[in-house]
Each structure stands twice: as C-alpha cells, then as structure tokens.
Design a protein around this nucleic acid. Structure first.
Lengths: 145, 145
DNA sequence: TTGACAAATGCAACCTCGTTGCAATATAAT
DNA sequence: ATTATATTGCAACGAGGTTGCATTTGTCAA
C-alpha cells in the first residue's frame, strides 16, 4: 500500500523525499491512531529524521490535498490526521493523557438521519461525534492532569 | 436569574466586581450562542469595559469552577462557554464565519445508548456531537474563507 | 468612615500550535 | 553533470492560552 501511494505521487510529478517517505510510512503504521503535527515531528525525530516544523505542517497539507490523509477533530483543540482509507468511524479522546483512537459504532443510526438536514437555518454539511473518557492506562485516575 | 447567581457568589465570599458582573450579564443575554474568551473580551470592550486577557481567562475558569458556565467544544479548535443551565443539546458551527449555535435534536437516541459504555478499553464519560455547515448569512457561499 | 485583608486585576513574559515570505537545498529528468 | 523546480529550513510572526508577581479593589468589621 505504501508503495502504491508513493508511486502515485511520483507519477504526478511530486518528489519522494526522505521526509515524505518517512511520514507516509508513519501514517501507514499508525492505523487506528490519528497523529497531530507535533506528534509527527516527535516520531520523525525518534527515527533520527530532523524536519522543521514548517515542513511538517506543509507536508500534512500536501498529503491532505492529495487525498492520502484526512484531518480529524478529536474534541480537544488539536488537529490530527489519519489515512484517508478508513471507513466511517468516530474518535475517542482520553481526558487525562490526550491519547486518541478510532472507534466504530455498530448501527450508528446518526449518519442516515442527520446529513443534509436543516438545523437553525444552517445548511448542514457534516457532523462529528466524539467520545471522551479515560484510556486503559489512565482508568485508575479520576483527576485530569 | 442573574441576580440570584451573583448573590450566590457573594454568599460564598467571592466579590462582585465590575468585570464579573458584566461577564455574568453577557452570558445570560447570550442564551443559545456560546462565547469564546476572545469574543468575551471584545464584548466587554464594546461596553467600554477594559479587561486584561488574563482576567478574562481566569474569570472563565472561575465561573466554570462555580458551575455557572460550562466549556463546550464546537469542533473548531476554540474553547467556548455557555450558561450551565442549558439542557442537553449539541452545537453547530458555521464553516465560513465560525458562528456557533446550540441545537437540540428531537429523539436524540445517542444519550441513552452511549454513555458509560466501554469502547476500546476506554471508560467513556461523555461525548460531543457537533454539526458543521453554513449559517443563514453564509449559505450563498460555497467556499470557506 | 476608615482600615485591613484577601480576592481580583494587570502586566510582562512565556508556551504551544500554526502560518508566511524568502533564500537555500535537493530530487529527478535530460 | 546540468538544470528546473519541488521541497526544505529559517526567522519572524500571530492567535489562543498560561504563569508569577506586584498592584488594586471589594468587603467586612471596627
């Protein structure tokens, strides 16, 4: 999969730079866990890949434009991204450690009911359903930090 | 209502300062429209009340601690607040002008189904359902700005 | 009415996340 | 190897938000 993605980019005339290849690899190896720009930078550094923050933000924009990743909103203020190929799902945010994971709700009735309806004179074009709670590691704690 | 709220604060030993009284008044007169810290500051200025941004943030924290307002998440990165007495509802965000309003969904099945269930080993304590779209004024436009 | 004490405020400095313009570098086709 | 331009790094900036500390200001009791 990664290879096809990279090959497709090359076909379109874009370059397969070291940073770009690492970033694509990171997204493919982080299936159910969306990644923020700062996190991505940290992950690159962990692999000894130094990338300026500007570059990271631009690469996220680029991969979004190319339809490879999509921006998701997990309910805290931070933008996160995940591979575009995910099916419809939602996200859950740990209120203590800010970990985010993808979750799928069986029989999520919402989708059919709510798209493209009128609410308060708004033309509704989409929605997001986010869950909040405590992840496995943070369950013992009551307080957020 | 505003008067009871203020009296209750005074009873607890807190002071009824000019800024605090104006802020409480603003929240009471902005029923269905959540307010962000910068917006609140602007509204104060519009009434010739100068408040340092630190003060505004601290007052929002204070009123949250006192259970008078609650922080809501409208799906963009910004924290907004609204009076706590609102019943259960959701929020809709205009993708063009960032206006936010409260909306109530009839027969919102979500609540009963989803609170306090286990998802991905998370202890789920809450959720947020946000809608995105174009408000009345922005309907004519397709592009976000 | 006036102190006095603590609550509230302002200020400056700082942080994170994110963006922009421009110069320097590196990919990839020739 | 050369070249065009895609990509990167750097510096500077901006919004939103936080912190420590000194100053001001409600409030209450004398």
């Amino acid at each position: 999969m990664r290879q096809e993605t990279l090959a497709a980019l090359k076909d379109k005339g874009f370059r397969l730079t070291k940073i770009r290849k690492f970033i694509v690899e990171i997204f493919y190896s982080s299936e159910a866990v969306p990644i923020s720009a700062p996190e991505l930078r940290t992950r690159l550094l962990a692999q000894n890949v130094k990338a300026n923050k500007t570059t990271v933000y631009r690469e996220l924009d680029f991969l979004s434009d190319q339809g490879i990743i999509v921006e998701i909103n997990a309910g805290d203020g931070k933008k996160r991204y995940e591979l575009q190929r995910h099916g419809h799902h939602h996200h859950i945010l740990c209120l203590r450690c800010s970990a985010v994971e993808c979750v799928t709700i069986e029989n999520c009735a919402l989708e059919d009911q709510l798209n493209s309806v009128d609410l308060k004179n708004f033309k509704v074009t989409g929605h997001a359903l986010n869950f909040f709670g405590l992840c496995e590691g943070c369950r013992p704690y009551t307080e957020c930090r």
